[in-house]
Amino acid sequence: MAEPELTGAPSAAIDASRVPSVVASHISITYRVFSPGRSEELDDPSDETGPLRRMLRRTSPGVGVREVEAVKDVSFVAYKGESIGVLGRNGSGKSTLLRTIAGVVPPTSGQLWLNGRAALLGVNAVLMARLSGRRNIWIGALAMGLTPDEVRERFDDIVEFADIGEFIDMPMSSYSSGMAARLRFAISTAVVPDILVVDEALSTGDAHFRDRANERITQIREQAGTVFIVSHNAATIQSLCDRALWIDGGRLLADGKPGPVAGLYQRKYGKNRHIWRERYAEIHRVIDQQGLEGARDLLRKWEPEGGW
C-alpha cells in the first residue's frame, strides 16, 4: 500500500522523534440504548396541548431505541513509555474511549491503530462470575493469547499475586470486590501487554495491594509499554502519569502535562469552581472592554506559571 503523501508541515499532534503506540484519528463511539426513552418535554406540566393530542404524541412508552454519542471526534497520539492519565467525570465517555483503545468496543467512526497488544484492566472486566477463580485464570490467560503450556507455567505466579488463597476453587461470585479486583489485575498483567488500560481498578483493594499494583504498573511502563489510567481523582493522575487527557461530554478538551490539565479539570468541577466561573466572566468582560491584552494581564496575575 502506498504511503499517503504528506502535504506541508507535519501536524503539531505528532512527535516524530518517538515511536507511537496508539494513534487515534477522529474516533466517535455511538451506543444503542434500548429504553422506553422519550424526551422529557412530553411530561412537561405546562404543556397546553389537549389530552387527545397528548395521547397521540405519546408514542407507545417502552418501545424504541436511543442513540447515545459517548465519544465525539477524539484524536491523539500516544507514545511508547508514556503513562497517560485520563480525567473526566462519571459518564464523560472516558471508560468507553478506553475500551475502544483496548480493542474491545469497535469505534463507530474514525480509525484507531495500535502498536502491539492491548489489555483492559478494570472494575467492569467481568470474567465468568459463576466459575471458579482457577477456570477464570485459564479463560483470561488463554484469551490473552497464551498457550496452555504458558498458562501452566505462570499459573502459580498469578495465584500468588492475586493472593486469594483457598478461594481459588470457589466461584468468583463468592469473592469480595477487593479479591475479584486483585484476581483480575493479576490475570491481565500476567502477560506484559504493550498497552495496558487501567480502568479505576486501583481504587478497590487494600493499601498493600495498591502498592504492589503500582509497582507492577511501573514495571510495565519500564518495559516500554504504554499505560492508560482512568480516574476522576486528579491527585492519582498527577502522581502516576506524565501526560493527561481531559474528556468532558465525550470530547477531548485538554491534552498535556498532568498538572495544568488537572488544574483545568478542577477549574470546572473542583471545589473552587464558582471562583473560576467569576474569573472567566471577568475575563470576558475585560476582553469586551479592553481587548485581549488586558485579559492577558489578568490571567498572568491569576496564574503566574501559565505562560500567558
Binding site: 515511536v19 491523539f76 497520539v77 469505534p107 495500535l114
Partner: peptide, 25 residues
Amino acid sequence: QYSPPYLPAAEAAALAARYDLTQVG
C-alpha cells in the same frame, strides 16, 4: 493553551503506516 492539537486523518494514517501499527475495530 492545552487544547489537543488538530490531527489530520491523513497524517494519522501515514504515521500508523510508517510504524506498521495494526488497525483495530
